[in-house]
Design a protein around this nucleic acid. Structure first.
Length: 616
RNA sequence: GGUCUUGUAGCUCAACUGGAUAGAGCAGCUGCCUUCUAAGCAGCAGGUUUCAGGUUCGAGUCCUGACAGGAUCACCA
């Protein structure tokens, strides 16, 4: 890209200044440039403190020389002075004009990165097939989607994948309950979305099991087990919850049936596999609807039923190579203590896989599929340890890309009432939430005079953009790594730091542009107003923000910057007339600026997965 | 208990990676639509950045320790 940001120009100038003046090599990147607080005069400030001791100079002395050099490099300043340890400079109008002219020359994608030639695979969502998607998945999906957009925009070749946990005891529970209680019910016959239908039977299984367990506790067998296995003076209400898993695995008739289903599946029993395919098929149709509603898609899906046996050969090879070791019971382990981790099991004593085994296999499989340079897993932070162990193991296996595997660890979503718990029915369902936000958007938009001549389809598209935008923005504006509180009533708020606020700024710009002539050139001599300079400097800084977001795997940086665009634009819009500006120069300058801000907002929101209405 | 992580206004979040007087929104109060979309703008009020030390020109940010939340420490996924 030919465009150089304000800060980059200053950094480079400062770096070469030190080279020439002191023969010192100071990386342009390391030069500390700050924007100046509003109440102090100036646009940017170069922090001089770090160099004072090193070169034995006073701030004044160094600042004066640097100021002279900067101006000699064609960076036009209206004022440049040393204040304490800062060199504060105010750019001249011509400089602002120049920067904006370069930006508008390139247009919409002025902040786009050049191709890096790097391939990035990003895995996100990765649901189980026994339950519909919920709020936690939504955060995962939005972060994953936005991250892939950002990585693509910064020049990477991005592939979006997910691994679907379609096998195991959970789906067998749904199948069993459906066999026993379902009477052949299907999504078509019931009108229930497939994933919700399968989820219904999962819940039903849990209820059946709960009742069975409760009855058993009262039975002679239950009493006997309690008196045999209780710890010293342990009360029943402590013992039985603790014993629940053991009961499921050893005593429970219904648990036994579920496990028999799993075994039958594993041995390829055609009837069970057929049923499993049928019910998973319902789930996938349901998931696809949800993905469509959210506006996301994937490049490749991996199914655990295909991958769960992967990795065993790698373990076998690693065992002969001495990467792994076996214990007396034939279980296989990897020692990660040199990384401050524990010893980790990679194969059970009966030779079957555990979670990390298939993750090793899948990673290698994916590398064969895509030859990625970087692999990103968007997975909740409860798996931090798992991924540390996985990456350490990959490193020990000496795969060359081990160091480029990252865990984008996001925090749990809490409700104001606390944690979401499926047992207590406090899970926020993804489909319900999407419907809810769109309907709130409709309620607040349907009165709008600006939509009067829109068709019903056009209107509902607007409601969708606003409602979905509000939801997405609400979630993405929070730093992904942090645990966040989700208040359903705030997520559908349409004022303040929200998508509709930002969309409104965009819509205002569109309204002006449709009423104006197409302007192509910036006036030569125009004296920029403070708010206009602020907008140009936000435009200027945009690509720095995007590349930070890509490096740090954090979409919230983009979200905040887009909000700044909107906020600054709303202010500017309130204080200055554009079409009725005081001079033709002012009007042209403001039109060019407005159009570019509109483009930047649209791009920024697209990186968050949010679409813009033309009117609202 | 070990490891990791978080703690900023009543609430939800920022703070350009160590810079100047810690900023937004929500909730509360007050103004501004005959004028480019009021889903907007302007203002008032709200803070000992959990606490105690340390590092330095300078700390919400780095270090140590306490306190308080959370996660994890399965032959579960």
């Amino acid at each position: 890209m030919s465009y150089k940001t304000n800060t980059l120009l200053l950094r480079e100038a400062t770096s070469t200044f030190f080279k020439q003046q002191y023969d010192a090599s100071i990386e342009a990147q390391s030069v500390n440039i700050k924007t100046i607080p509003d109440d102090i005069e100036g646009d940017y400030s170069i922090v001089l403190f770090p160099y004072l001791k090193r070169f034995g100079v006073t701030p004044q002395d160094l600042g004066d020389k640097l100021a002279e050099y900067i101006q000699s490099q064609g960076i036009q300043c209206a004022k440049i002075e040393v204040v304490k340890g800062f060199l504060n400079l105010t750019f001249a109008d011509a400089f602002w004009r120049n920067q904006l002219a370069q930006i508008t020359e390139i247009g919409e994608d002025y902040a786009k990165g050049d191709s890096t030639g790097k391939k990035v695979v990003i895995e996100f969502c990765s649901p189980n097939t026994n339950k519909p998607l919920h709020l936690g998945h939504i955060r995962n999906i939005l972060i994953g989607w936005s991250m892939s957009e950002i990585l693509a925009y910064t020049g990477n070749d991005v592939k979006k994948v997910q691994i679907i946990n379609d096998r195991g005891i959970a789906i067998c529970k749904s199948i069993l309950a459906w066999q026993q209680e379902g009477n052949g019910e299907t999504p078509d016959s019931s009108g229930v979305k497939g994933d919700h239908l399968v989820g219904k039977y999962y819940v039903m299984f849990e209820k059946l099991f709960k009742k069975e367990y409760a009855d058993w506790q009262e039975s002679d067998a239950g009493e006997a087990t309690y008196s045999e296995n209780q710890k010293e003076n342990e009360k029943k209400e402590h013992f039985f919850p603790r014993y629940k898993n053991t009961y499921f695995n050893t005593h429970s008739p219904i648990g036994k049936k579920a496990k028999e289903l799993l075994l039958a599946w594993e041995s390829g029993d055609t009837e069970v596999v057929g049923l499993w395919q049928k019910m998973n098929g319902w789930v996938y149709e349901g998931f696809d609807e949800t993905y469509d509603a959210l506006g996301v898609s994937f490049d490749k899906l991996y199914y655990e039923s295909d991958t769960y046996l992967l990795g065993k050969d790698i373990i076998a090879k690693g065992l002969t190579d001495g990467v792994f070791y076996q214990k007396e019971d034939n279980s296989t382990w990897v020692d990660l203590e040199h990384k401050g981790l524990d010893q980790k099991l990679v194969l059970r004593s009966d030779g079957t896989s555990v979670y990390i085994t298939q993750d090793i296999g899948t990673a290698i499989e994916r590398h064969k599929d895509f030859g990625f340079d970087q692999m990103i897993y968007v997975v909740g932070n409860e798996q931090d340890y798992h991924f540390q162990a996985l990456f350490a193991t990959m490193d020990k296996l000496e795969v060359p890309y081990a160091k480029n595997m990252h865990h984008l660890s996001y925090g749990m979503v809490d409700l104001p009432s606390g944690k979401m718990k499926s047992r207590e029915g406090t899970v926020v369902d993804a489909d319900d939430l999407v419907k809810e936000v769109i309907s709130v958007a409709e309620d607040s938009a349907k009165e709008s005079q600006f939509l009067a001549d829109f068709s019903a389809d056009e209107k509902s598209e607007v409601y969708r953009n606003i409602g979905l935008g509000a939801l997405k923005y609400f979630i993405l504006k929070v730093n992904a790594k942090k645990r966040m509180t989700f208040d359903p009533s705030q997520s559908v708020d349409m004022h303040g730091v929200t998508a509709p606020y930002i969309q409104n700024a965009y819509v205002r710009i569109q309204a002006i542009l449709t009423k104006s002539e197409d302007v192509k050139n910036l006036p030569e001599n125009y004296s920029w107003q403070p708010q206009e300079k602020k907008l140009i400097s936000l435009l200027d800084h945009f690509n720095v923000v995007i590349s930070h977001a890509a490096q740090q795997l954090d979409p919230s940086l983009v979200a905040h910057h887009v909000y700044d665009f909107a906020k600054e634009y709303h202010r500017f819009y309130n204080d200055h007339k554009i079409l009725g500006a005081e001079s033709p120069e002012a009007m042209n300058a403001r039109l060019m600026l407005s159009r570019q801000v509109g483009l930047a907002i649209k791009v920024g929101m697209r990186l968050l997965g949010i679409s813009m209405p033309q009117r609202m």
